[in-house]
Simulated assay, not measured.
Amino acid sequence: MRPALEAALVRRSVSKVTDAAPDDAELLELLGAAGRVADHASLRPWRVVALRGEARDRLGSALALASGLEAADPRGAAKLATKPLRAPLLLAVVAVHTPDYAKVPEWEQDATAAGVAHLLSLLLDEAGWGVLWRTGPYTRHPAVSAAHGLRPNEALLGWLYVGGKPERRRVERLKPIDAAARLTTLD
């Protein structure tokens, strides 16, 4: 079987990971490959922010603030604040918009950034890391943007939660994709 096809067929999201995580050198290698996605006009409209250690705590505080639950439901806010601690490394995927560039509309720039996230998750999985792509209602909140140091022309698409794959993990069988039901051919 072809390596890329095999990697895509065996990839699984891993929601519970160990405390191991790739170092910056490995991330740079994988990110260099992930950045080869289709990119109209070669804008490279993306960047990745790595959150480790206390940066995950700061993100949790920003998520709790963004939720507005701190006064009404302190337990709910506290639970939300611990979500970034579920993996030792979070990779925030950021779309970097080149405004007023008519040749490549903003949605297409977002699509390129999402393509980088997907390919990076596939490469991390193939390298033996557990990965889960998370989004949520607070990705565009100003407190969450500030926690990532985002500029006005940037938008957070979500996070790749990355860590070691547990030695014994339940392997879920995914339902096969009915590709024929998803393909339309026009003659």
Rank of each mutant, 00 (worst) to 15 (best):
P3H: 13
A4L: 14
E6A: 05
A7E: 09
A7C: 05
L9E: 13
L9N: 05
R11D: 01
S13V: 06
S13Q: 12
V14Q: 04
V14K: 01
S15Q: 13
D19E: 12
D19T: 03
A20W: 02
D24W: 05
A25R: 14
E26G: 01
E26L: 14
L28E: 14
A33L: 15
A33R: 15
G35Y: 11
R36C: 09
V37R: 06
V37F: 07
A38Y: 08
H40P: 08
A41N: 11
A41D: 15
L43I: 12
L43V: 09
R44H: 13
R47K: 14
R52W: 12
R52S: 11
G53K: 02
G53C: 03
G53D: 15
R56M: 05
L59K: 03
L59M: 15
S61P: 00
A62K: 01
A62F: 01
L65C: 10
S67R: 06
A72M: 10
D73W: 06
P74G: 03
R75E: 14
R75G: 12
G76Y: 08
A78D: 15
A81L: 11
T82Y: 00
K83Q: 15
P84F: 08
L85C: 04
L90M: 09
L90D: 05
L91E: 00
L91W: 05
V93C: 00
V94T: 08
V96H: 10
V96P: 01
H97E: 07
H97C: 09
P99I: 04
Y101D: 10
Y101Q: 08
A102Q: 11
K103I: 09
V104I: 12
E106W: 07
W107A: 12
E108Q: 13
A113I: 13
A113K: 00
G115H: 08
H118A: 13
L122F: 11
L124P: 03
L124N: 05
A127T: 06
W129P: 00
W129T: 02
G130H: 03
G130M: 02
V131W: 00
W133P: 01
T135C: 03
T135A: 13
G136Y: 00
T139N: 15
A147S: 13
H148M: 15
G149H: 11
L150C: 06
L150D: 06
P152I: 11
E154I: 10
A155G: 06
A155T: 15
A155K: 14
L157P: 01
Y161N: 12
Y161A: 04
G163P: 00
R168D: 06
R168W: 02
R169F: 04
R170G: 04
V171W: 07
E172H: 05
K175Q: 10
P176G: 11
P176Q: 11
P176Y: 04
I177E: 10
D178T: 08
A180P: 02
A180L: 09
R182G: 03
L183H: 08
T185K: 12
D187W: 12
D187L: 10
D187E: 13
